[in-house]
Amino acid sequence: MAETLPPGAWLPIAFAALMGISMLLYAVLDGFDLGVGILLRRTEEEAMRDRMVASIGPFWDANETWLVLGVGLLLVAFPKAHGMILTELYLPVVLMLAGLILRGVAFEFRAKAPAAQKPRWDLAFQGGSLVAAFAQGWMLGAYILGFAPGWGPLLFSLLCGGFVTAGYTLLGATWLIWRGEDALQRRAVAWARHALWVTVAGVVVVSIATPLASARIFDRWFGLPQLLGLAPIPVATAGLVLVLHLALRHLPRADHRLDWVPFAATIGIFVLCFQGLAYSFWPYVVPERLTIFAAASAPESLAIILVGALAVLPMILGYTVFVWRVFGGKAKALSYG
């Protein structure tokens, strides 16, 4: 492959990698926030809801910033693709933004507005999370089909909306298994069991649809040397699903030492799915239409961003780890200092 790359290709590649990692981090990190939001009104107990919100309270802001970085990198590194993708996805983008707005403000309002309004803001919290998750799945579906027009592709996109919602719900539920205690933890195990099978169905359907959408991807998957290289992805995914299934049958354990396992396994599934997609679409940023090399900004501009990003990203990682340690362990009630 290397000999076919255009000269100076390493900059677009580096940016595609950075952008991909940001999007993956966003999906995992805000995925569990949105999942917790989707599950919020599954319980009527106010104390349990407060604890669920408290478990993600210190993290959601920074988590959402990965979306800004991911879209920002698309915008700054591949401006042509940014315009093309976002105008194609106008409607789900608007829906997602409305959802994210509602979810984000509900965090604050449910704690600060008059108590009588709290149920309404809980509804906004759940509704916003649900709409944002669904819209992101819709976008994924439309992207996989290369923004093909018509009812069939739309139906598939909406189906993907449902699958991503299930995936995020699984992330949220397994997060609550890790960070929750007692009744909340037991409820979370039950929620995770339900979400798991819809998620698995989603992974299977998307895996069937992706190679069918494009002959190029089909060849890349089922051509002979490639098939062997690709095989570890579905095998590992199946293994993680098995781990999840077993863990959810046996949790919560009395010693709580394995509470983190379902969450980690779910993240593993997300990472593998992401790898599969990245493998399929490389080197396109707009499927079958625009490669990362054709869409890239001028090298001197990319270089100056890269210098800044490489200088600052270790710091971001450092203080993110610090905050995760400060708010580590089982979720406690939050209060303003």
């Binding site: 104390a47 407060d50 919100v53 408290a54 009630a333 939050l334 303003y336 200092g337």
Partner: peptide, 8 residues
């Protein structure tokens, strides 16, 4: 504070 139910 209703967010966590404790005296701030």
């Amino acid at each position: 504070e209703a967010l966590g139910g404790r005296d701030p």
